[in-house]
């Protein structure tokens, strides 16, 4: 477990977070007392297998999951419940499934212009054109529907949509796990470049240790809704991990051993 958090200069401070869903009448505790903090401009990773609660933590930050205990602070301040427009300007998210996160009947143009309308931006036309250019999509895609795009292109649209309101924090929920390996490399490079250009703080969730190692300076390993251990990136490379579970994950990520 990581030590007590110094919430003073943290961009995001999550302390003792619990999330409880009710399934039927049974309460299901998806996240059990997880704490971590993310520094400004840092890229922070959450790793775990299915059921570890890693995505739920991300959704709790956005107000999409029922928080039953603990608190989440951004720049030291608690957030409005429910999340307001000001929150949307600062924190955005990219979802795992590029096929499910774009409205099937909205053209790319509509997808990108809607946030601009919500937040009353004036130079919408220019911003849409620029947003497409920033994520490396040709302007010809602008009036297409999502089903006319490949998975990688859709995920670029989802990234463009998240960044078009110029947030400070980008939450990434397995952004490449539905993509082919070669497309994954392109999307990861794109995210790295945009992070530098726009001074973003990342929180990235993945089941793939190698992806997290590539993208994040620090990470938290999760299992069954609990934090297993917090690590620096260098610890992964040196296999300097303390828990058996992390070691298992490390071995597994190297492939099959006969």
């Amino acid at each position: 477990m990581s030590g007590p958090q110094s919430a003073g200069n943290a961009k995001i401070a999550v302390s003792d977070l619990s999330v409880t869903f009710t399934q039927g009448r049974r309460p299901v505790r998806a996240v059990k007392g997880v704490s971590f903090s993310v520094k400004p401009l840092e890229s922070f990773g959450l790793v775990g297998e299915s059921g570890s609660g890693k995505s739920t933590v991300l959704r709790a930050i956005c107000g999409l999951a029922p928080v039953s205990g603990g608190e989440i602070r951004i720049d030291g301040a608690a957030m409005a419940e429910p999340r307001d427009k000001a929150f949307a300007r600062r924190v955005q998210m990219v979802f795992q499934d590029p096929y499910g996160s774009l409205h099937p009947r909205h053209t790319i143009d509509r997808v990108l212009s809607e946030p601009l309308a919500i937040h009353r931006f004036s130079d919408r036309e220019d911003r849409i054109v620029q947003a497409l250019k920033d994520v490396g999509l040709d302007a010809r895609f602008r009036f297409r529907l999502p089903h006319q795009l490949s998975g990688g292109q859709r995920q670029r649209v989802a990234i463009a949509r998240a960044l078009i309101v110029e947030p400070e924090i980008l939450l990434l929920d397995e952004p490449t796990s539905a993509l082919d390996a070669s497309i994954q490399a392109e999307v990861l490079n794109l995210l790295t470049r945009l992070r530098e250009e726009r001074n973003l703080t990342f929180v990235m969730v993945s089941h793939d240790l190698a992806v997290i190692d590539h993208m994040c300076e620090r990470l938290l390993v999760m299992r069954g809704g609990e934090a297993v251990e917090a690590l620096e990136r260098s610890a992964l490379a040196d296999h300097a991990v303390s828990s058996d579970y992390t070691r298992t994950l490390l071995t597994a990520s190297e492939g099959y051993v006969r």
């Binding site: 300007r89 795992q96 499910g100 774009l102 409205h103 919500i118 949509r161």
Partner: peptide, 16 residues
């Protein structure tokens, strides 16, 4: 669906 969650995260109100 994720696209509804995404719209909500964009700051869209219930009416929208």
């Amino acid at each position: 669906a994720d696209y509804i969650a995404a719209a909500r995260l964009q700051g869209a109100g219930t009416l929208r």
